[in-house]
């Protein structure tokens, strides 16, 4: 029970990396399936498909960054974990939540938009830039969540 604060903080880091990572895996998977469908018929579009498939992968990276910063703030990476009260731990947990939740959902939805964009370039490959823009717009909310999580993690008193 003494380490409950630390437990909550680590749980927050795990959620940020875990949920954003799962979301990205699903998003990249959905876009990848659509990409494979297109490449079966038009293998020459590999480069364009690859960019669209990568886009939902960024949320996993953001989650990883938040987790690293959080673990660094609580001293776990340096090898001397801070003694956190349970309320401090919960605060760190809460700080990681925007990235975990927004990361998961934005990655899945970005994957869907990317898959639709793949279907769009299947019919007309000159529309790739528009497809990328549509997919990238979903990213905005993952970036906002990343900023909120980073600001929160840096401003929690330890």
């Amino acid at each position: 029970m003494n380490n409950l604060g630390l437990f909550f903080a680590i749980l927050g880091a795990a959620f940020a990396a875990g949920f954003a990572g799962i979301g990205s895996a699903r998003g990249v998977g959905i876009a990848g399936e659509a990409g494979a469908g297109l490449l079966t018929e038009k293998p020459e579009l590999f480069g364009k498909v690859l960019i669209l498939q990568i886009l939902p992968g960024t949320q996993g990276l953001y989650g990883f960054i938040v987790a690293l910063l959080l673990l660094n703030r609580i001293g776990l990476i340096g090898g001397t974990p801070a003694m956190l009260t349970w309320s401090q731990g919960l605060t760190f947990f809460a700080a990681a939540m925007p990235m975990a939740i927004a990361g998961y959902f934005s990655a899945v939805y970005q994957g869907r938009v990317a898959a639709s964009a793949v279907s769009m370039i299947a019919k007309d490959s000159s529309q790739t830039a528009k497809g990328m823009t549509l997919s990238a717009l979903v990213e905005t909310y993952a970036v906002l969540a990343l900023l909120v999580s980073i600001l929160a993690v840096f401003n929690i008193a330890v």
Binding site: I30, A31, E33, A34, G35, A36, G37, L38, T40, E41, K42, G111, R112, A115, V118, S119, M120, A122, K123, D124
Partner: peptide
């Protein structure tokens, strides 16, 4: 519904031909 991603993209590509 996302299970149709592969099939729809392939069909759209075939449609363009």
């Amino acid at each position: 519904d996302t299970n149709y991603a592969y099939c729809v993209a392939r069909v759209r590509a075939a449609e363009s031909k």
